[in-house]
């Protein structure tokens, strides 16, 4: 379990994190999104015991990052966005070093190194120097390092950066599997479409303040004051356009190749009523659907103008 309790972090007069609170239950994935400098990394560093909050407290598995950093670190795997490497070191030596640093000894250490190599697909790269790895392979190694001591909580800062499309899909599956295995995961990414698919909940942060914290579906529901609809018509579109123009709550009608896109300032019931009116006027409707809002749209909608 991950929990931030009213955390504030000041750097001089700048509020990097401003009274942020959220909880990630065990076995779930929480997507943490926000523009650069929003306070994501600072919050993650507070959880990872690398920063002290000015106010509030952060908890990992019920242990305070402030009061009990040593015990927190044993339960935590942290993957920062920047990967630092060692010269004259190969992947196996790198993993062995971090296994030792996490207190693993003997057979346990060997098993964990083997498991991480299989898990991240680094077995074939084991003897290769880190400095010669591609960015994608480095990301794998960094994820492997975070997993080497089998932590129950993972904090991943931009884990998909630099991965090829195939590896991204696999990473998504792996994160879901890790969550199914009981691991609690806090993940930040700029690739919002991926977060939408893998996260149970999403938190949107801007200028240190948490603006939203909900499921993706919940966010869509909360933020929607209108519906964007598409209707594809077989035949001429004039009748349909006339009907739509007669509806007071319909706006922004755009036509493109017998497809009309428009906005309705109403709910699902209103959507059905408009379809009935089109059908009653014998308009040949081939397709009638709502334009689904992406996480990018939601992010822009939630962050726009709230904190400036």
């Amino acid at each position: 379990m991950i929990e931030l309790q009213d955390v504030t972090r000041l750097f001089g007069s700048t509020r990097a994190v401003d009274h942020v609170s959220f909880m990630v239950p065990r076995g779930s994935v929480f997507g943490y999104i926000g523009p650069n400098g929003a306070g994501k990394t600072t919050s993650m560093r507070i959880l990872a015991t690398l920063e002290l909050p000015t106010e509030g407290d952060a908890f990992i598995e019920g242990l305070s990052s402030v009061n009990d950093p040593d015990r927190v670190r044993r339960r935590l795997g942290f993957m920062p966005d920047a990967f630092g490497s060692y010269s004259d070191t190969n992947c196996a030596e790198y993993l062995d070093f971090f296994a030792r640093s996490n207190g693993l000894v003997g057979r346990e250490r060997t098993r964990r190194i083997r498991w991480v190599m299989d898990f991240t697909g680094l077995r074939s790269m084991a003897e290769k120097p880190i400095t010669g790895l591609s960015k994608g392979m480095r990301q794998r190694l960094c994820l492997g390092r975070a997993l080497i001591h089998d932590p129950s909580v993972l904090i991943l800062d931009e884990p998909a950066a630099g991965l090829d499309p195939r590896a991204r899909i696999e990473l998504r599956q792996i994160i879901r599997s890790l969550a199914a295995d009981g691991k609690t995961i806090l993940i930040s990414s700029h690739i919002l479409s991926e977060l939408a698919e893998m996260c149970d909940r999403v938190g949107i942060i801007e200028q240190g303040r948490l603006l939203a914290n909900d499921t993706v579906a919940g966010l869509k529901g909360n933020s929607q004051t209108h519906l964007d609809l598409i209707v594809v018509i077989d035949g001429e579109t004039e009748t349909a356009k006339t009907i739509l123009s007669q509806c007071e709550d319909v706006s922004d009608v755009v036509e493109l190749n017998r497809t009309l896109q428009f906005r309705v300032a109403g709910d699902r019931q209103r959507q059905i009523e408009i379809l009935h009116r089109l059908c009653d006027a014998r308009v040949n409707v081939l397709e009638y659907r709502v334009v689904d809002e992406s996480l990018e749209d939601l992010f822009l909608k939630v962050t726009a103008g709230k904190v400036q």
């Binding site: 299989d118 898990f119 697909g121 794998r140 195939r166 599956q173 792996i174 890790l178």
Partner: peptide, 9 residues
Amino acid sequence: VAELSLGGG
């Protein structure tokens, strides 16, 4: 979970 991997093993 190790049955899944990032490939390359």
